[in-house]
Design a protein around this nucleic acid. Structure first.
Ligand code: FES
Ligand code: FES
Lengths: 175, 175
DNA sequence: CTAATGCCGACCAACGAGGTCGGAGACCTG
DNA sequence: CAGGTCTCCGACCTCGTTGGTCGGCATTAG
C-alpha cells in the first residue's frame, strides 16, 4: 500500500522520544510504550533491532534501559525504515542488484523510469535526520532542510545505495 | 515495506503499454498479459479498476478491449497507485482527515514532521505522468520541475538520450 | 538472594495482497 | 436470426506477511 509499517512508526516514535527526552538518561522500554500507548513487547523487539544496529546503547538490570548512542543527525528515516522494516524500495525488483526473481525483468519497460522515481523517494527519506522528527514544532528547521533538498544539489551522501539500474542498454542479459 | 504492490506495478505497466502502443486501437487484456508475462486475470481486475476510474474505455465482445480514454499526461503514478492500491500515504493516520482510528493520535509527536515527509513523497509521485513511464526515462516534456529534478542527477545520459528521443516510437522491441 | 530490566526465540491471529472462478454481455459466423 | 465464442465483469478463495503475544534466560542494582 506504499506505507511504512507500524514497526517503523514505532521506531521513529521511540527514536524521537530518546532524542528529545533522553539526553543522558537511560529510558526504559515500558516508559516509551506507556507514553505512546503501543504494545510494549513489540516495541521491545523494535528496540532490540535498533540496539543491534548500533544506534542505541542498552544497559540491563534494574534502572537499565536504552540511550541514544549516536548523534541525532546521523540517522535518517530512510535508515530507520530500512533497518527495522527490511528494505525500503518501491518494488522488489530494485531492492537488490539482481536477487529479484521478478519474472517481468526481461519485458519490463517501466523499470528504468520507476528506478528514477524510487531514487527520488529514497533521497527524500535519506535526507531527513531523526532530529527533524520531533514534536512538530521546528517548522523552520525541517522546512529549510527540505527546501535545500528540493532546491539545491545534493552531493555525497546518496552514493551509498547504488541503484542497479545503471546500465539499461544491454539487450541480452545473462541470468 | 514501503513498496507499491504488484497491482500498481501491473497498472503502470499496462498504462504505459497503452500509451505507447494503443494509439486508437483496442488492446485486449490477454495481449498485455502475455506481453509482460503476468497473470491475465489479475491484470483484468486491475484494468477493471482503471476503467472504473474513467481512464480506460472498455469495449466487450470479440475484437474488444481497452483504450486509453484520457491524455497520457493527465494521470500520474500517484493517481494510479492511489486508485489501484487504495491510498498512497506513508501511514494510515494521514490517509484520510480523521478516519484513522490510530490510537497514538493523541500522543503522537511525529505526526507533523512525518506528514511533511509524506507530502514530499506524494509530490514526487504526483508529478510523474504516465507519459514519462515509458521505455526509457526520456523527459522530453520537461515541464514539471520534478522531471528536471530527476534529470539532474543523471544529466549526461538523459541529455544524450534527449537528442534523438523527440518522437521515437518503440524500437527493437520484438522478442 | 531477589527483583527489575533487557534479550531472544518461538508461536499465533488477522488482515491484505495475489490469484482463481464462474457469469453476463457483445461481436462474429452461418 | 440463432448459436458460438470471445471479451469484460464481479464475487470468491488461498496464502504470505505483518502485527502482536508468550515464556524463558542472562544481567545487574539493591
Ligand atoms: S516489474 Fe520487476 S522489473 Fe519491472
Ligand atoms: S502514529 Fe498515528 S498519529 Fe502518529
Amino acid at each position: 500500500m506504499l506505507g511504512l509499517s507500524k514497526k517503523s512508526d514505532y521506531a521513529l516514535l521511540a527514536l524521537s522520544y530518546l532524542a528529545t527526552n533522553g539526553e543522558s538518561r537511560t529510558v526504559r522500554t515500558k516508559e516509551i510504550a506507556e507514553r505512546f500507548a503501543i504494545p510494549a513487547e513489540l516495541l521491545a523487539k523494535v528496540m532490540q533491532r535498533l540496539a543491534k544496529m548500533g544506534w542505541l546503547a542498552s544497559s540491563p538490570g534494574p534502572s537499565g534501559g536504552y540511550t541514544l548512542a549516536v548523534s541525532d543527525t546521523s540517522i535518517t528515516v530512510g535508515d530507520v525504515v530500512r533497518a527495522v522494516d527490511g528494505g525500503s524500495a518501491l518494488t522488489h525488483c530494485m531492492q537488490s542488484p539482481e536477487a529479484s526473481g521478478c519474472e517481468q525483468w526481461a519485458n519490463c519497460t517501466i523499470r528504468g523510469p520507476l528506478g528514477f522515481v524510487n531514487e527520488r523517494v529514497q533521497d527524500v527519506l535519506n535526507h531527513i535526520p531523526i532530529r527533524d522528527i520531533r514534536e512538530r514544532a521546528t517548522p523552520a528547521s525541517a522546512e529549510s532542510e527540505l527546501v535545500k533538498l528540493v532546491a539545491r544539489d545534493h552531493s555525497a551522501p546518496a552514493a551509498a545505495r547504488r541503484a542497479g539500474a545503471s546500465r539499461s542498454r544491454n539487450e541480452g542479459d545473462t541470468p
